[in-house]
């Protein structure tokens, strides 16, 4: 749960983080990663036994073997499908739910303890139950990802609507704008940044959901690969799985940042 940010600061985060992906920063970022990998490699020769912490060159070799044998794609695509489906499902249900709750403040107040209770629940702990209910296939992991992300969408969208300038709504009202017109010109544009911020936060959480599900019960996926490597005391395997997960999160983050800059030009 360390990845959760408070929903209220999400759009700010969007603005500030934009710059970290701007093209001018990329060479410096790449250089930093390279230096860190080099330090790790050197440390594995001089400071510790690679049995405990592996080393980048061994991980690269393993990833190459996995790629050639086709296992890399099988595990990656499995995890991607689970996390992606969970994320989309959460957006599909969370956005309308957030809009609905924001428009029905009384219902929102009634449901508030329930929502905050479920949101505060360490949903990772639900994994064994979900395996029991939904089996060891894709569906239980999709449900894990979904429950991890759903509240991010609901709470972000509600907050986005809450921050709409009342004057803008009054102005629309004074010109007798219809309900649909207001939704289309004020409400939706106002929450788009919050939805994109939810995707950004949600990618990491959806991956966590899928991986946790795989750790508990499955026969494929990156989480399963990490788990089974760990069981065989194969640290290189563990790190290989983690590296792929990290790259997935980074690529997804980059894609969302790209979409943000394309869609939200007005910021």
């Amino acid at each position: 749960m360390a990845l959760t940010r408070t929903p209220s600061d999400a759009p700010d985060t969007v603005i500030r983080r934009k710059s970290s992906w701007s093209s001018s920063a990329v060479p410096a970022q790449a250089a930093l990663i390279f230096v860190l990998l080099l330090l790790w490699e050197l440390a594995s020769y001089y400071l510790y036994n690679p049995f405990w912490g592996s080393r980048p060159s061994m991980i690269a070799e393993r990833l190459w073997e996995l790629a050639v044998s086709g296992h890399l794609w099988m595990h990656t695509s499995t995890t991607l499908q689970e996390a992606g489906a969970g994320l989309l499902l959460a957006a599909l249900l969370g956005v309308p739910a957030g809009i609905g709750l924001a428009r029905a403040p009384r219902l929102a107040r009634l449901l508030d303890p329930v929502i905050m209770g479920l949101y505060g629940l360490p949903r990772v702990a639900l994994a064994p139950l979900f395996i029991l209910w939904f089996g060891i296939g894709l569906f239980s992991k999709i449900m894990m990802s979904f429950t991890m992300v759903l509240f991010i969408f609901i709470l972000n969208v509600m907050e986005g609507i809450r921050t709409i300038d009342q004057d803008q709504l009054d102005l629309m009202k004074s010109m007798r704008a219809g309900r649909l017109y207001v939704v289309w010109t004020v409400l939706l544009p106002a929450i788009v940044p919050w939805i994109l911020a939810s995707f950004r936060i949600g990618v990491g959480l959806a991956l966590i959901g899928a991986v946790v599900g795989e750790l508990i019960g499955s026969n494929r996926g990156l989480g399963w690969y990490v788990e089974s490597s760990g069981g065989q005391l194969d640290t290189t395997g563990v790190f290989s799985g983690l590296v792929v997960l990290m790259i997935l999160a980074m690529v997804a983050n980059y894609l969302i940042g790209f979409i943000e800059r394309k869609i939200i030009k007005w910021r």
Binding site: D165, D167, D170, L171, M172, S174, M175, V186, P189, A190
Partner: peptide, 26 residues
């Protein structure tokens, strides 16, 4: 009846022309 607010209440996601267009559309 048209109301020009003390605060401009422009829609930040609409351009200058787009904000003026709201008046025309309504």
């Amino acid at each position: 009846v048209g109301f020009m607010f003390q605060k401009d209440a422009l829609l930040p996601w609409r351009t200058v022309a787009g904000n003026i267009r709201i008046g025309a559309e309504l």
